[in-house]
Design a protein around this nucleic acid. Structure first.
Lengths: 121, 121
DNA sequence: ATAACAATTGAGCAACTATTCATATGTTCA
DNA sequence: TGAACATATGAATAGTTGCTCAATTGTTAT
């Protein structure tokens, strides 16, 4: 328990379980790590990108194929591939006029599977 | 290869690898499933919520404790807990004036661990 | 060189989201 | 009952995001 005199606290509760907070505080990973994790999941948090990734589970595809498969414009797909590329989730391979994208990560499939387990509960 | 006469296609490419698209199309999960998956990851895609979840890995906590731990307002935390609750990721337990939240899912930790593997590559 | 096509990029816009602020609801205790 | 406190909720707002449209870059083939 505490007085709220400490610092510039946003929490205005008069009673906090200090022991619990202390314990949890000691176990929290560094701020930056949690931020990066959120950034990664943010990338997964869009159904267009999920679809792109799922398609790439099966086969590498060029931008044009993906656009056709998802019935979206090349531009929209290209923008999303840029996001996925920046997150190091896909990698491009140019072949003539086409650019083929493929998955660049082993863990994605496992992450998706665990996600599906939650959904299907 | 195809003419682009088909339907109302958004993709204006003149050449699509139909064989690949067909194959991938057959493997795509139902639209709704992919949408739900994106919705789940969207919930993970915010560092405040990531922090809350990580804290709850360790111990159930009341709103007030979480707010104090993260140095945020009760209101902000309560709003986020609502999102987590709706996603069936946390569950509340009232004890007097306090409401204690705990994790309501076995898969979250595994999802996070796989996410971290990607980050630390 | 230049025409044709695939892909990328930047600006702009509509839709969404996380927080704040003010207020309401629930619970305990005097 | 009513004062005090913890939590929840609704409206408002600033910031973010996904798509479109237009223009550009990169590659091939004539």
């Amino acid at each position: 328990m505490r007085g709220k005199s400490d610092e510039n606290l946003r929490c205005d509760c008069s009673i906090v379980h200090q022991d619990i907070v202390k314990k949890v505080q000691g176990k929290m990973p560094p701020e930056e790590m949690l931020y990066d994790l959120a950034e990664l999941f943010k990338v997964f948090g869009d159904s267009t990108r999920i679809k792109i990734i799922w398609a790439l589970f099966e086969e590498e595809m060029c931008v044009c194929d993906i656009a056709y498969l998802l019935n979206m414009t090349q531009s929209a797909i290209s923008h999303q591939l840029r996001v996925l590329k920046q997150a190091r989730l896909v990698k491009p391979r140019r072949d003539g006029k086409n650019v083929y994208y493929s998955l660049d990560d082993q863990h994605i499939e496992e992450i998706f599977n665990q996600g599906l387990k939650h959904i299907n509960e």
